[in-house]
Computed example of a mutant assay.
Amino acid sequence: MPEGHSVHRITRQFQRNFVGHRVTVTSPQGRFAAGAEQLDGQTITDARAVGKQMFLEFDHGLWLRIHLGLYGAWDFNGEILMDATMASANGRMGQTNQHGTELPPRLAGPTFDVDGENSIFSIGAPRSTRVRMSEREKEIDFTDTFPPEPVGQVRVRLLTDTVCADLRGPTACEVLDPAQVAAVLARLGPDPELDNTPEAEERFVTVVRKKPTPIGRLLMDQSVVSGIGNVYRAEMLFRAGLNPHTPGKSLGDDTVRALWQDWAHLLHIGVATGQMMTMDKLEGAGYRRAMKHRADRHWVYKREGLPCRVCGTHIVLEEMAARKLYWCPRCQA
């Protein structure tokens, strides 16, 4: 499932390329036809990300809420203006870096990892060489024709004169009024990329320290903290040396605050690079290798049965909160 950093990156794409523009809204697949009709022809006035959810505001007061879930993803095409934290130049966004797009030196090249975890052009569910893993779609052919023909099950298409965004496979795609948006937001925990104030930190600390629930479950609870998914959960717990089964209420104040601060740190890196980089102080060839290969940028995630990078104990795999949990029984004892 795309985690919080991906949704923030998507939102920045919309802030740069769609906010302030009138959009044509359609549902090539047909499943969102009624919602598309409510939004078609309106101007997007705001784009917000909170955790794993994105909200687009339109000038007639309605909002589009998107939750990508396990299989959702956005594909962009057209004359895209990239966010400064994602790339430093403009260019037509296609399958490869062939249309004049330039990346900052630190991100050039390694941005495209071999696992398909990140792409500037398409953000969301995993894919391999532009093939949607969940739908086994044919390869998307980016050409000079604009807008391109919809490929596969496109739930909603947002189109301006120069930019096109196609959404496939979301868990949620719905039109809401302001009161309904406020109700959704009220159920979500704090997101440090949106609000990293002492008040947001205190809210997280207070909730965790009241709960008998294992910390491995609390970090995945979007009402406790927004944006953390399976990868960040495993990596944060290892970095903190915490047993995933430790009840939240048994953790010390400083420990919980450190978790919040580490989440803010890792999330910011993820937004900037597009990849869940959880190993610090990598430089040179080590950094480039980690940007390209997932196996070289995580401590425990997907390393079951392999020796811990610190103590050599085999990494354990178990299920928690209906998701796979990876941890070191020695370093996290």
Rank of each mutant, 00 (worst) to 15 (best):
H99E: 11
M86S: 14
G72V: 02
Q332R: 07
V114T: 12
L219Q: 08
L56R: 03
V207R: 13
E318K: 08
S128K: 13
I10L: 10
E318L: 03
G270S: 01
R65W: 01
T255M: 06
Q29P: 00
P148L: 15
T197W: 03
L39P: 06
V50H: 13
M291Q: 12
P178I: 06
I66M: 13
V19M: 01
G241V: 08
W263Y: 14
A89L: 08
K302E: 15
L259G: 05
E135K: 11
P247W: 09
A34P: 03
A321I: 00
E193L: 10
E102L: 13
M276K: 05
P214N: 09
L159F: 05
K324Y: 12
M133N: 12
G216K: 04
T143G: 13
H245G: 08
Y326K: 02
R12Q: 13
L325D: 05
A322P: 00
G124E: 05
G78H: 06
M279K: 14
W74I: 02
A73W: 10
K211H: 09
R187W: 00
G51C: 06
T162N: 02
E283N: 09
F55P: 04
Q29C: 12
T278H: 06
A264F: 06
I80D: 04
Q15E: 14
V163G: 04
P178M: 07
W63E: 00
I215P: 01
G4K: 00
Q95G: 15
R303G: 05
M236R: 05
A33Q: 15
L325M: 15
N17F: 07
A34Y: 02
W260D: 01
T162V: 06
R309G: 10
N196V: 02
P110V: 09
T213G: 01
C308A: 08
Q29M: 12
